[in-house]
Design a protein around this nucleic acid. Structure first.
Length: 309
RNA sequence: GGUGGGGUGGCCGAGUGGCUAAUGGCAGCAGACUGUAAAUCUGCCGGGCUCUGCCCUACGUAGGUUCGAAUCCUACCCCCACCA
């Protein structure tokens, strides 16, 4: 009579989630559901630090390589596809394990978003064009007027733009939708949060970045660009990609690439830590991932056995 | 050796007598976050405290002028450019 059915492993980039997931595979026949907003993009393998072909052969990974750079993805779409995949994995008699660092994606899956009505594509694009051209303050003022209950004091322009988009396209405010159209989570999550002291995390990020540069981030991004990806659209606005684009545009000296990516990655990892610390509710098992992945995996396996009993 | 420019808080960089613990930016720390989330934003950021205020320390070093100096004067140290 377990009240959980799906292990979910979260943690900042570079903490070693993939290694732990692979190590976990010695305990159960498992398949990984990747909750990563950038690994869904094909061809961007090195910059997004995807698991290698060999690793994916050892343990199946899902929700990677779904779309082309430049195409839009979303937390909502992730939740739908993840739920389907989880069902399929389970039907195979394997244990689905959600592993990822995209907090909102995890939240969308385990808590649910709201039932968004279909949005007319051309009208949506029109609204995006308008909001995209507005300055931050005006945007926030407009959003606050359309949805007074939304609390946009420290929201930022994307949240404001989203608020405006929903209000204009559906006739109801976003907070109205949140209130009246909430949908539940798709799984009963058992959440493990991997963390490590800053110094350890920073060291791992730096090592990973150098490896990334050595394996040719710039060339990879150049190829995506040559293939028609917009240089700032969905998938192309992530850490590493931006820096590689800057190198290609000559605005960042190549010898400073690794440093720039390392700094941006550290900042991203910090934001993730903040998210995971506060946004996933109280039932989270926090583990220090400074130890070797096998040890962490063993501890997770034991804890899961107790939790799922 | 000569002439000119410069040494400012972890870094870069404003400031040329009081409104200056010192604009900005970066880095760092904390926080927000419901379909673009590796995104987008907010706060803090010399130290200490009995913390709507108070006390230290601080603008290369040492002196000086002044009611008052990062800002003016003198000497010295170091850096850069050009001339030798």
């Amino acid at each position: 009579m377990a009240d959980v059915d799906t292990p979910v492993i979260v943690g900042p980039t570079g903490i070693g989630k993939t290694a732990v997931a692979l190590a976990l595979a010695v305990f159960w026949p498992l398949e990984v559901i990747s909750a990563d907003s950038r690994q869904v993009y094909r061809t961007l393998d090195v910059v997004t630090a995807k698991p290698t072909a060999r690793e994916r052969q050892r343990v199946p990974h899902h929700l990677i390589d779904l779309i082309r750079p430049g195409e839009r993805f979303s937390a909502g779409r992730f939740a739908v596809e993840a739920a389907e995949t989880i069902g399929a994995v389970r039907a195979r008699g394997h244990l689905p394990v959600v592993v990822g660092g995209s907090g909102l994606y995890v939240k969308a899956l385990v808590e649910g978003l709201f039932a968004e009505p279909p949005l007319d594509r051309p009208r949506r694009d029109a609204v995006t064009a308008v909001t995209g051209a507005m300055d931050h303050a005006t945007l926030v003022r407009w959003a606050a007027r359309l949805d007074p209950g939304r609390g946009l004091a420290s929201g930022g322009r994307h949240r404001a733009a989203r608020t405006i988009e929903i209000a204009l396209l559906t006739g109801h405010s976003l907070s109205w939708w949140h209130r009246t159209a909430a949908v539940g989570g798709q799984v009963k999550p058992w959440i493990v949060r991997l963390t490590a002291p800053r110094a350890v995390l920073h060291q791992r990020i730096e090592a990973r970045t150098h490896e990334m540069v050595r394996r040719g981030v710039v060339e990879e991004v150049a190829a995506a660009l040559a293939d028609g990806a917009p240089n700032d659209g969905p998938g192309m606005d992530g850490v590493g990609v931006r820096e590689a684009v800057a190198v290609l545009h000559g605005t960042l000296p190549r010898e400073r690439l690794a440093e720039a990516i390392t700094t941006a990655t550290r900042q991203y990892a910090k934001r993730q830590e903040t998210w995971f610390r506060h946004q996933l509710g109280p039932n989270v098992l926090t583990l220090d991932a400074t130890r070797p992945p096998e040890h962490v995996a063993a501890e997770i396996a034991a804890a899961w056995k107790a939790a799922a009993a």
